[in-house]
Amino acid sequence: MIPLEHFLVVSGALFSLGLYSVLARRNAVLVLMGVELMLNAVSVNLVAFSLFEDPRLFLGQIFAIFVIVIAAAEVGLGLAIILKLFRMRTTANVDAADAMRW
């Protein structure tokens, strides 16, 4: 059996890669993709914990399902906002969205 620590290290590495692309990228679509990767890393962690803690309870799987639902909602809304930003500024650069008020 694979030790729990290996799952934690893999998901930690995925989370860090997602964090890097959120912080370092300039295109809003790429930032959103980084957020998706971070959410996935957290779900892997939850499922691994629930399997190693109490396999009959599968709480982690339920949590991961809800994480996927919220991620789907977030992607839909985020991409709509990016489309609107592109229409107003003709760019999807996150630095272009600096107006707090119209």
Binding site: A13, L14, G18, S21, L30, G34
Partner: peptide
């Protein structure tokens, strides 16, 4: 998975 993440980054 890590290769995909690195490619994304």
């Amino acid at each position: 998975a890590l290769a995909g993440g690195a490619g994304l980054a």
